[in-house]
Design a binder for these strands. Structure first.
Lengths: 354, 354
DNA sequence: TTCCAATGCGCAACCGTTTCTTTTATGTTT
DNA sequence: AAACATAAAAGAAACGGTTGCGCATTGGAA
């Protein structure tokens, strides 16, 4: 189907607006006016000629030149700990779409969860002259000093606590966690553990506080706290420790779906049933939670809306109006892992094939 | 900690190499030489002065200007169906890292699995003057006509069949699938189904052929073929159909981990045990396969190496040397779902807490 | 001492746009 | 018919960085 290989640079004559102008018999300025459709008016017949020349030549404006002249690259940067994490993947996708809808492209950068890398990535994005950056660390306070210096607009995306001078968008971390615990209490649990990420710098604390509040309101003592890495493996290890714990809790609130998936695995391996032996409630509302076994009850974040708001905040930011801290409500998605939905009997003696 | 809000544009005087030159008492050319460290030689003392001025002013070269002059944006584009799919998320991350190691940033674009969107995204990337694009569709042939016209180098990333005029990197799809089936046969299965994606335009076919070959070599008839969407939900539905099938197969080869996860869920809901009632082997080798229940046996793709090779191919592509079709070997990762590893007894009567 | 090569640096053109300003063409009003 | 208002198009100056070229300055060799 395709027969023409890419030609070497020499044979790839980029067509500029000058070529278009020549072909259409007008000046380059006119081409610019019809391309951008500014306030300057071009006669319909001229515009048509130009448009014809453009499509005949397959002309595409050079974004670099445009960016240079305008001082705006029409690109946004986003640094996340790890796009491999479904939560951030979903967030990044939502942001990409919201940005694209406004004509912005998204430059994605993984920090690997290290503050040093995050700083490096921000610096890199800054030198590429993005019009703004989304910062969505979890494990640590983002390195804002870097931004102060480069004076590039930023919004803290997955960040629920206020930071002076920065727009941020987050969710009701505390309230969501509190309600999850409240829900577990409603199932009759009185010994409820907490599985948290490590390096709790900022946001994670709110989940911890929510857990504490939920217990306090029910007059219950705090169960054990297990800290682990922010991934499946971490949750798995935490689960193993939980299984071995003396006075094992009957329920656990986990700070992310990913960790909960790992924890579920540890339970299965130990022969413990969820939710009968251990009820689980986690946080994020990712697709993976829906398809885990058993399906996870989880505190769902309105990712689309958050992304939308973040893009809005970043693009519309004038640098002078007061910064905002947008906090979105969360939803409790009730499934089997907390005991709400029935878990289908896992081993009905159906006749095995041959 | 942070007290200075972003200032309005007026108060953000971008410093250019001219400011640096003035402060260092040299010409702008010299600044350029020390920044880029070209063949031109600058005396150490002058270079030191310049460097000092640079850091004093916090100067960052303007990437747009550089791109304009050099004709290279030092950005690569990548269009994937969906970054939310763990396989593509991992691939994108690996590519981002490989590109970053060579000084390139990655512009990520989701096509949502539609050819029209993919075309639009490629066009968008082209107008942003990326130095090349990675195309990794699954469900359809990438729209190469677009690329032909814009003459922007491309490599087909997740693409195992050869396309004239394009570099591509893929895996031994057919061989991997064949071996997976062979493995299932080795477990004694004689009725082995296939769960495939829909719109099988290109690569999926190779998996189908591999499945056929594996069966043919064992002298077995072909089991049922179930086509479904390329996600968890699709696999779930396929699983439901499989459960209801007359003469239910005892094993199934699934074209992706994601689909297999959905299928697993359908099995559990139907009370069928994996691998006793149905052995499952899937494709991709994603992290999710490791943490599913039971853990999935899967054909693992060497994603890091593939990303590395793709970046190498794209950056090093001169447009004249013959294109290459890099095919990587795959690995069979054996876990419980095919019957290799023991599945821990799922319901030991351990005393429930309190 | 004189000449030449090498070295270090500055000048200025250019990359492809946008946009302000000026020029030219077209109508309209006395 | 002259003068003027208006619209349409052309001209040209940036934006910030790179780089070929040329001019000084220097050291060493003759």
């Amino acid at each position: 189907m395709v027969t023409v290989p890419h030609s070497p640079a020499s044979a790839r004559p980029t067509i500029t607006r000058k070529d278009v102008a020549r072909l259409a018999g007008v000046s380059t300025a006119v081409v610019s006016y019809v391309v951008n459709g500014g306030p300057k008016r071009v006669s319909p017949v001229t515009a048509a000629k130009v448009r014809e020349a453009i499509s005949a030549l397959g002309y595409r404006p050079n974004a670099a030149a445009r960016a240079l002249k305008l001082g705006s690259s029409e690109m946004l940067g986003m640094v996340v700990p790890d796009t491999t994490n479904p939560f951030f993947a979903t967030l990044a996708r939502a942001v990409e779409e919201a940005a694209a809808a406004r004509g912005y492209a998204l430059l994605l950068a993984n920090s690997g969860g290290s503050a040093a890398n995050e700083r490096r990535q921000v610096r890199n994005l800054a030198s590429r002259r993005v019009d703004g950056v989304f910062l969505s660390s979890v494990l640590f306070e983002p390195d804002l000093t870097e931004l102060e210096h480069s004076e590039i607009p930023a919004v803290l995306l997955n960040h629920s606590t206020e930071v002076p001078g920065f727009n941020s968008v987050g969710v009701e971390l505390l309230e969501g966690s509190r309600r999850a615990v409240e829900h577990l209490v409603g199932h009759g649990h009185r010994n409820i553990a907490l599985v948290m990420g490590m390096n709790a710098g900022n946001d994670l604390d709110a989940r911890e506080v929510g857990w504490q509040q939920g217990l306090a309101e029910a007059g219950l003592p705090e169960g054990p706290i297990l800290r682990c890495d922010f991934d499946r493996q971490g949750g798995y290890r935490a689960g193993q420790r939980l299984v071995a714990a003396a006075d094992r809790p009957t329920a656990v609130f986990v700070s992310s779906d990913l960790q909960a998936v790992g924890l579920l695995r540890a339970m299965s391996e130990a022969g413990l049933r969820v939710p009968e032996d251990l009820a689980v409630f986690s946080f994020d509302g990712s697709a993976e939670a829906e398809f885990s076994w058993p399906p996870l009850s989880t505190v769902a974040q309105p990712i689309q809306a958050m992304a939308e708001a973040a893009v809005e905040a970043l693009i519309g930011f004038d640098g002078v109006s007061p910064t905002r801290n947008r906090i979105f409500p969360v939803d409790l998605v009730l499934r089997a892992s907390c005991g709400c939905a029935p878990v289908p009997a896992p081993a009905l003696p159906v006749a095995a094939g041959q």
